[in-house]
Design a protein around this nucleic acid. Structure first.
Lengths: 349, 349
DNA sequence: TTGAAAGCGTTACCAG
DNA sequence: CTGGTAACGCTTTCAA
């Protein structure tokens, strides 16, 4: 017999059977009361709920999912890192939305490593999640195969992709880099530098750099140096990256950074060594992070609706779980912020 | 009969029984091979693994946990918010450590609301987690009761507490605020201000303010105004909070902020309106965040080992899961960074 | 080294 | 409105 109400289980947890027995009803009746689907008298309900409270019964959702051969309420969410505040905010957007609809985030930090991601996907799928949200569009072949056959809603975020595995929300990073390159080239800068960080896999930042590089090429400018540091993209990396870059290439006229925090670091370095911004050196960031708003200079940057990305990703998963029709790929776009840390266009007399 | 190998389940997932049948062995043998616990021949192993690969079998861990009446490999982690980068980093520290030992983080953002936390605790416990890490020491009565009877390792982080529900790692926020207050009072400042954000529950920032306030009182100074904004503690909040504060209290000589980001915002505001720092106004932050390192001024602040808190919390949970003895309360302390945004002590002639 | 049967806590299904 | 029985996919236990 299963769930013998007289034999406490190994965890000393109260089971439905025990509640039912104490209330003098069957397991099924107790189950119905707890799920509140109707089909029981008020008197029965009261009896059962009284015992639930008295015994401190907590349902075992493992058993629930298992018995119903359903999905759990988990949604797996993989993010490269949280040291980068933009990803932290994407995650916050996702979890809030999921939480509001009774779902839980199972977190996976991939550290930009495709192998980590693969391993995490395998693990999280074994918990029968209701959906998956992963950052980026490059996955290992095995990961792709697992994602394909999982049969659950999947959203690839960050990097917009017109033919995603399932769904996708993000922006075209190449284009955003190209925009910035074209904008800077239009300000009559000729000698460019780039400071960012490097990872094993092709990632969104690399796409931005590629776009930037292409724009410069198209404008007959010269990308003197692209400095890729093996570090986290933050203030300090921007600061010392700029120091390194300028030490080797004093003639660089403007620098594009992987993100705003690095750009702010670069700005501080430029000021420290007495360079005037934007006269002596142009500084451009990416992301339009909060820090930009309070600087004495408005940082030239690319604004990205990152909160929206997380929110939309969660909505896509939820909609598909509920069987609603979903647009499968959403480009949230970006916006160039002219700012005041690069030169202005010449006014036409 | 259970797990009939011929009847595909509703999710179209491959079951152990199907793998076993394809390999021409029993479920038990296949199970043994997969858990690699010995008790099978090499030939059998090869047959089973071949079918696992061919069919793309992924185990259903729900069933595993359930059958063994075990705990899952989940660890529930509740964090107030991720917009505050310090919490994002604590979470990152936790998840990395847990991940390295085969555990998964189930995230809960409480938004500083005790009711959210209670609801999340109830949900996450129903998934039979192996442990729990929660931020803060104030919980609802029902939450406390659930945590007590859960019978799993529990760590309360952030706010050090010598008598935790189970385990605890953090620092004494009151003391850190007191230290800063005493330090500033020692610099001959007399009129103080505080800028922070407010939440429904008594939280760590409130404890810091209380400590700060007490130190000022003990030094016969005057806390002119404590401004608590209903917003997220960030650069912009610090900027406009300072504007508000100074508009109403022009004679304030030094301001203590809830965190460094707010302090940087305040610093920018002070510079914008032409106040000299620290001559006209002293600025002190809390947390020693990365931004502080690259400012032209070294921000006066309190350094906190936040990465360490996450890491230790995860280690405590893991140790207790493995039945190792654990120190139940760890105070990681803090360190006052004198910086250059408040006046220096008078030199003794 | 292998396998058959029982059982984990819950819900689906059917009968009363 | 209520309850008995089978089933979910796996592991434990015991026997071969």
């Amino acid at each position: 017999m299963s769930s013998d109400p007289d034999k406490p289980n190994k965890n000393n947890k109260i089971s439905l059977a025990e509640v039912a027995k104490a209330a003098g009803v069957s397991k099924m009746t107790a189950s119905r009361v707890l799920r509140d689907g109707g089909g029981f008298s008020e008197k029965t309900r009261a009896k059962v709920m009284a015992e639930v409270d008295r015994l401190g019964y907590l349902p075992n959702r493992l058993a629930t999912v298992f018995a119903g051969d359903k999905k759990s309420t988990f949604v797996g969410v993989s993010i490269p890192e949280l040291g980068n505040e933009i990803f932290a905010q994407v995650l916050e957007g996702i979890d809030r939305k999921l939480g509001a609809f009774g779902h839980q985030t199972v977190l996976g930090l991939t550290e930009h490593e495709i192998d980590h991601e693969e391993k995490w996907i395998e693990t999280v799928l074994s918990w029968q999640p209701a959906g998956l949200i992963v950052t980026g569009r490059s996955h290992s072949p095995k990961a792709i195969q697992m994602l394909r056959s999982a049969g659950i809603p999947l959203v690839e975020i960050w990097d917009f992709n017109s033919s995603p595995l399932d769904m996708c929300v993000g922006l075209n990073h190449f284009d955003s880099g190209y925009s910035m390159g074209r904008y800077l080239a239009g300000m009559e800068y000729r000698k460019f530098g780039y400071v960012g960080t490097s990872h094993d896999v092709a990632n969104a930042a690399t796409a931005r750099l590629n776009g930037f590089s292409k724009a410069i090429e198209d404008a007959n400018g010269r990308l003197e140096k692209q400095l890729l540091l093996r570090d986290t993209p933050g203030f300090y990396t921007g600061f010392y990256g700029t120091e390194q870059l300028l030490a080797a290439h004093r003639d660089i006229e403007t620098i594009f950074y992987q993100n705003d925090n690095m750009a702010i670091g670069g700005l501080q370095y430029a000021q420290k060594i007495g360079l005037r911004v934007p006269e002596d050196i142009g500084i451009a960031g990416w992301g339009d992070l909060p820090i930009s708003a309070i600087q004495p200079y408005r940082l030239t940057s690319i604004a990205v609706p990152h909160l929206k990305i997380g929110q939309i990703a969660a909505e896509m998963v939820l909609a598909q779980i509920n069987g609603e029709p979903v647009k499968s790929a959403k480009d949230v776009g970006f916006r160039l912020i002219p700012g005041s840390t690069v030169k202005k266009p010449r006014t036409n007399a």
